[in-house]
Amino acid sequence: MRVHVDADKCQGHNRCYALAPELFDVDDLGYASAKDDGEVPAGLEDKARLAVANCPEYAISIDDNAAATSDGHAEKPA
C-alpha cells in the first residue's frame, strides 16, 4: 500500500501528520508529504486509511496495489 499527498490540494490542515506521523511529514510551511515515497509499512494500513478519512481537502489518496506493482519508481515530488 502507498499513500500520496496531492500538493495542489493540501492546505496544511496537518490532520494527517497529527494522526500518522509515521507516514507523513510536514515542511517548514506546514504542508504535508508522504514519507518514504509513500510506502506504508506493514501494520500501518489502518493509519493510512484514517489519514485519508480525515483530510478535509481530500488531498490524500491510497494506492492499494502499489506494493505489488511498485519497482521503486518515485512518487510525483510534492
Binding site: Q11, H13, L50, A53, C55, E57
Partner: peptide, 22 residues
C-alpha cells in the same frame, strides 16, 4: 474516527493558526 470537519475553514484561507489553536 472519520472526521473531515471544516472548523478551520476550507481552501486557501485554511486557518493559519490551526496548529496553534489545536
Amino acid at each position: 474516527a472519520e472526521n473531515r470537519h471544516a472548523a478551520f475553514g476550507l481552501g486557501i484561507h485554511r486557518c493559519l493558526g490551526s496548529n496553534l489553536a489545536r
